[in-house]
Design a protein around this nucleic acid. Structure first.
Lengths: 385, 385
DNA sequence: GCGATTATGCTCGTGAGGCGATCATAATCG
DNA sequence: CGATTATGATCGCCTCACGAGCATAATCGC
């Protein structure tokens, strides 16, 4: 039953016959299970458009209009976004606000109010909240964020606006989940996502499951010491890869002071390089090599099938792809070079983290416990007369 | 049923009552399941020794004397070992041979013959073979081994002496599995194992499951570029961590030529350092810092609950623990420092890889398919009269 | 020593969940 | 318009685990 529901979630436009084939279900089981899902207002079945093939036409399985929804929040540099997602993964943007440099408490208060509005609008249909934060997340807390400027903020509890699960994760992790499940890494057994915004984030995904370590802080690849061992990192360590591949690295190579907004600084340098500025070009090439070399090391260590890139990493792949790839190849162990995992642009450069947050939130809905609680809400009194 | 069998495997000396409690089984189910397992010659039940407590005494659940066994092979530097393991994980060493610098084909032939002897001795009780190789393993092949000196050798198929599963993995991976399931990292949700012999190997374990990437080559942490970017590595890349933490690093720091046997060279330097030789001491300190710094980066990226160390890494922890730990802490992101994952000596410094190979081999036995095939063998003709 | 207490094992009825055979249904093909 | 083809619905069956009630075997307390 859960398998069926998950399949519908991942393949929103399947027909019933496909579903039975893909999951190896007998037609009898399919009938039974789908009847249950229909009764629970989770799916609807409608006549499929005629395919022209012989045989009795099958029916398409769709999400129910009054099925469960989740809220997805993405808190990134200077602005946050809120969207609602339903079975099948579609995203409905609801709100976007810029918040400048306001303190965490104020911003979380605003987000909390917005979530309460969602709760009012959707009632018990709202089953979970997924939150993506630009920064290091550990144990439900935002531990540190160079991007936002907050430190050690309790987020999960602060945004719990109802007795429903709240999942929180790093933005690169979330984006990786989106890529692995519905984006550029769909179907890969093991995928590596690398996002460069301010510093480097990423995640390894096994069959779409993020490996986030013991506290959820896994994927901080930017704090692997790939760089100059003498260069201090704001994280407290030295020689972090972070400092070699983002706007700070570009500025440093160009002899400019550390930028206040490394992401837009990177974009500016990339633009100048695109226009032919030789100094900018040289800096971009250098950073592209730093990126490629590090990814090579990560591939050696983690053995992914495919690598997806987003943010500045994707831009570098576009503008200095040869340098990225050359450094990548020469950073690989020899046996990998004849068939290296491809470097691919992320499919969701804009809303990957929002999508991933929705995805992880939906995981709690599409679980034994989530289904039980949905059942309990649908049938207020479990009659035993 | 599988859960019960796995529990018996992991806790060989449980009583039946404990088993039911731990797995949340009703007593009725326990009775039924254990009756089935007994009928299949998988477990035996004997009266437990009296505890002195009140109530009806329970019975201990043990492996059956004619239950399934697996063979475990460990091919390491200059010698290979063969052992047999049964339900519960106990290891019975059978053979150990030195093979000098012989070609792969000869050595695998010898191992194959030894395995066939095991097959003859145990017959259909032999259900799987686990092989641990000192070197990089990808897709069932030994791709490259600096230690053994072989390159691109098909191992899995070569050692298939019967229609039973053959699992093969890197020795550090196997040792990590053993640590996570029965050793120093037992119970950790996420554990990191780091082994330094010739170069660095390791693995991340989630609930005892090794994350070995898409081809099984995951965990080659030694080829992360933590070192001098200009130093070429035999693997083809540059600046590999490998070159900074093993016997080659110690020799280089001491101004000695590259050792033919880096592992014993490391032991020699460690012994001299232990005897107070100042040059050796300084080299050991330097390598200890290189090790600690890299582990710090790995912990940043992978977020384990605990780190287990074996080989030269464990020796460095013993002899230069303060240096390892200081470099480790200063390589950690700040937020991790107040409660860093502990660095711990491996519990199985000698036979971890053999144990891990047995463990992974037994995974195939303790699976749906493995149980089905055991059932099929026990009842030659599934009567339907 | 013997009933009371306590903890465990066994039996049996129940229910969930899925399989597969059989029949029913709805399209296209000739 | 029947033959063919693919799908849906129904029903008996099987497996698996639960849980209530009874049986069993130890210690405790008098």
């Amino acid at each position: 039953m859960l398998d069926v529901l998950r399949h519908v979630h991942l393949h929103p436009e399947t027909t019933r016959a496909e579903l039975a084939r893909d999951l190896g279900l007998s037609r009898g089981s399919a009938t039974e299970i789908l009847a249950r899902l229909r009764a629970l207002d989770l799916v609807e079945e409608t006549a499929a458009e005629p395919t022209g093939a012989r045989g009795r036409p099958t029916r398409t399985v769709r999400r129910h209009d009054r099925g469960p929804v989740v809220a997805a929040v993405d808190v990134s540099y200077e602005s946050w976004r809120l969207a609602v997602s339903h079975l099948g993964g579609g995203l409905e943007p609801l709100r976007r606000e810029r918040y400048g440099g306001q303190p965490a408490e104020d911003v979380l208060g605003r987000i909390s109010r917005a979530l309460r509005e969602v709760r009012t609008a959707f009632g018990a249909r709202l089953r979970a909240v997924g939150v993506s934060m630009s920064g290091t997340v550990s144990g439900g807390r935002l531990v540190e964020s160079a991007t936002i400027g907050w430190r050690d903020v309790e987020v999960a509890e602060r945004l719990r606006i109802a007795p429903i699960p709240v999942v929180i994760g790093n933005d690169a992790t979330m984006a990786g989940v989106a890529e692995a499940r519905r984006g550029a890494a769909t179907g890969a057994d093991v995928a590596l996502h690398v996002a460069v915004e301010v510093g480097v984030g990423g995640v390894v995904l096994e069959h779409g499951r993020a490996t986030t370590g013991s506290t959820g802080a896994g994927g901080e690849f930017g704090h692997l010491p790939f760089g100059d061992p003498d260069r201090p990192c704001p994280c407290g360590a030295h020689g972090c890869w972070d400092l070699e591949v983002d706007g700070r690295a570009l500025a440093r190579i160009l002899g400019a002071p550390p930028p206040a907004a490394p992401r837009s600084a990177a974009d500016a340098v990339l633009r100048r390089a695109g226009e032919g500025d030789p100094a900018a070009l040289a800096a971009v090439e250098q950073v592209a090599r730093n990126l490629g070399r590090g990814i090579g090391g990560l591939v050696n260590a983690l053995d992914p099938r495919i690598v997806t890139l987003s943010g500045v990493a994707a831009a570098l792949l576009d503008q200095a792809g040869d340098s990225v790839r050359a450094a990548y190849l020469s950073g690989l162990m020899r046996f990998r070079r004849h068939d290296p995992p491809p470097l691919i642009r992320a499919a969701f450069p804009r809303d990957g983290s929002l999508r991933g947050a929705a995805e992880l939130a939906f995981d709690t809905v599409l679980s034994e416990a989530g289904l039980d609680s949905w059942r309990a809400d649908a049938r207020p009194a479990p009659e035993t007369v």
